[in-house]
Amino acid sequence: MEHDDILVKVENLKKYFPIYGGILQRVVGYIYAVEDASFYIRKGETLGLVGESGSGKTTVGRILVKLEEPTGGKIFYNSSDITNIKGSELKKYRRKAQIIFQDPYASLNPRMTIKDSIIEVMKVHRLHKGEEYNNALKLMEKVGLSEEHLYRFPHELSGGQRQRAVIARALAVEPEFLILDEPTASLDVSVQAQVLDLLKELQEKYNYTYLLITHNLAVVRYISERTVIMYRGMWVETSPTKELFNKAEHPYTQALLKSVPIPDPEVKKDKFLISGEPPNPTTPVKGCPFADRCPYVMDICKNEMPPVESIGDEHKVRCWLVNKK
């Protein structure tokens, strides 16, 4: 079922953050941020990674650009294992994979103009020697900005322009793989669509591969071919996006889809929204992570991890309900 043109493959990724306590600052526990993230992304494809706050989706993104070290699991890029690369290999990898953060203002140095930020990146990687400025200009055009924006400080740009500038900077290293961590969450609704369109357009032109991390299902539907749903650091369902919207199998996915607001006051929605508290990330999962809040919970859910069930081409679910059917 998997194909040769897979660019990124993540297997059983885990990340536990230690909690320090006491006078001696000893490890007293862990935050189980990511328990099991597994997925693959083909070249030129967009994979949506969806989950609520605290589901570990951002941590997965940060691990993929090596800002965090995973506690367990493996990452393959172009079929080579990059889980523990360092030094020059890491620098090489950083030219290929780039991350766009949610807050473009915070991700730009407030004391550097856009020009300095972009040119610095090219200089570090020794790209376009002597032609840095012209290339910065080209990048600006690519993302729909103009030369005058190069001379601005981040605070002199609007939110959308800033995100475009951040994208331009990421493209300066000529990456293949972009991790978009809630790229539009901090923008106005009108600007969100523009930025998404820009990302789509860039992908069509230059065949970039995207991992889109978001909590916004509308964004996923708009831009990604396949989607992974995460809950409490664990993937619960993965499927082509269209199929997911039509026949989601996991109760959590179903609840998510039902909680998307419909802009029509006449429509009466049935009230199956998720009840209960969000999970506590400091206790390890035993059984299904969603068991505490699942309306269809069974005894087995609480004690045993559901097996992965394949229910169609590239559609997999991790749920006892599906297993029992």
Binding site: R94, Q98, D103, A106, L108, E120, V121
Partner: peptide, 26 residues
Amino acid sequence: EKLYVQAAKSLGIPDFLILFKHVFPN
């Protein structure tokens, strides 16, 4: 700890440059 330092790191900018060009001036 600020995001622009993380961004610089992920862009492959070496540690000493991050310290001198990003952290230090700010």
